[in-house]
Simulated scan of single mutants.
Amino acid sequence: MSDWRVRIPGRDIWRVGLVEAPIADIARRGFPADAPVRWLGEEGRLKFLADPFGFWRDGRLHLFVEAYDYRTRHGVIETIELGADFTPIRRAVVLKEPWHLSYPQVFAADGEIWMLPEAYRSGAVTLYRAAAFPDVWEPAARLELDTPAIDATPFRHDGLWWLAYSPTGPQRWKQGRLHFAFAERLTGPWRTHPGNPVRDTLASSRPGGTVWIEGGLPRLPVQDCTRTYGGAIRILNISRLTPERFEAEASAPLGSPPGAGRYAHGLHTLSSCGPVTLFDVKRIDRSLWGARGD
C-alpha cells in the first residue's frame, strides 16, 4: 500500500530565555537545574523573537532581539527593558531598515555604546552608535571585509579588535564556515585573516553568541547545524588566535535548558550579560497554517 502522507515543511519558531548564571559556568556544566529559567512570552502566530543580547544601564537589563514576522520575511531589532524581577516593563522597535536585521550585538567601547546587527542582505556590515540609548541608533561605520558578514561577533584579544563571522554564499557556507578579521580600532580599517575560512564544518563554525575571555583565551559560542539550522550550541575553545595563526577545538553540544518543553529542537544563541546568560530555543512548526503561510 502506498503511503499517502505528505511531510509538511516546517518553520523555525524561536523563544528567548534568561538564566541567572554566568556564561562560563553554563559552558562548563550546562544549564543549572537549580537556577530557574525566565522565559519571555511567546509571540503571535507566524512571529518570534530570537538572537537575544543584553546591556545593563542604570541597574536595568535591556534586551535587544530580532523580531521576525514570517508574513513579511523581515526582521527588525527591538529592545525589551526588564524590571528588577526580570519581568518585561517596556518594549519598542529601535532599528528598522529596508533589509532584514538580526543578531544585535550591543556593547560598550571607547566611551560609546555600539550595536553590530547582522544585515548581510544589505551587502555590508554596518556598525551603529547609540545616539540616545536604547531607542535611537545611527550608522557610524561600514566595516570592509572579505564578505558581507553573517552573525559578526566582535571582541578584544591581545590588543586587537576581532570579528568572528560566517560568509555569504551557499547555505553550506553560511552555516558551516568561520572567518576572522582584525583591526586596531573598532571602526577599522579591518584586515581579514589569511586562513579564512579558518574552520569548515557544520558542527561548529557559525557564531552563536558573545565571546568571553578565559585564561587569556577567547571562548566563542558556535552553532551545530549538522542536524538542523541552529540545532545546538557548542563552545569553540580557541587556543591560538593571531593575525597569522588560528587553532581551536569545539566542545560537546550543550543540552537544552530546563523547561524548554516543545522548544527542544534547537539552541542557536548564547550571550553573556554579567551575572545572567541569555539564549534562544526553537520548535519546528509543521501545522497547516505554518505550511501555507496564512
Rank of each mutant, 00 (worst) to 15 (best):
G30W: 05
R90G: 14
P243M: 11
G290R: 05
P139G: 08
C273G: 00
L236K: 07
F53H: 09
R90I: 02
V106C: 05
D110Y: 11
N237I: 10
T87C: 07
Q105K: 11
R199L: 11
I113V: 14
G17I: 09
I113L: 07
G255L: 04
A84C: 09
F53T: 09
A50L: 05
D110P: 04
A250G: 02
E78C: 11
D224P: 01
W137G: 04
W4M: 15
I213M: 11
R206N: 11
L95C: 07
L18F: 01
Q105A: 13
P117F: 01
T192G: 10
L61C: 01
I26W: 02
R191T: 14
L116P: 05
A84P: 14
G231Y: 15
R45I: 06
R191I: 06
C225A: 10
A35T: 04
P117R: 00
G44E: 02
I13F: 03
G231P: 13
A252C: 02
T147I: 07
R286S: 09
G17Y: 04
W56Y: 04
I80W: 09
C273I: 00
T87D: 12
A141H: 01
F133T: 00
Y70A: 05
R29Y: 15
G215T: 01
R234K: 08
G17W: 03
L270C: 08
R191Q: 14
L241H: 11
L46R: 04
T226V: 13
W137F: 11
A232Y: 08
G111T: 00
D200L: 12
G123C: 07
E144W: 10
R185L: 10
I8M: 13
T269A: 06
G54L: 06
D135R: 15
G75Q: 08
I80F: 05
A50I: 07
T72V: 10
A119F: 03
T72D: 14
G216L: 03
D34K: 01
P257A: 08
T242H: 07
V19R: 00
S205C: 09
G208S: 09
Y68E: 01
S2G: 02
Y229G: 01
P189V: 06
A203S: 12
V222I: 00
A33C: 07
S256E: 13
T242P: 02
W114F: 11
P36C: 03
R283Q: 13
E97K: 14
E97Y: 12
T201D: 15
L178H: 06
L18R: 10
L278N: 00
A124Q: 15
P253E: 02
Q105F: 15
A84Q: 14
R245G: 01
Y165G: 02
S166A: 13
P275N: 03
A108V: 12
P36D: 03
P52D: 07
P258T: 08
L202Q: 06
G290H: 08
E97H: 14
P9W: 08
I26E: 04
L270D: 02
I213W: 01
E244Q: 15
A132G: 12
T87L: 08
L278G: 04
S256D: 15
L63W: 14
I213S: 00
R5G: 13
P218T: 07
A119T: 13
V281A: 04
R156M: 07
W162P: 04
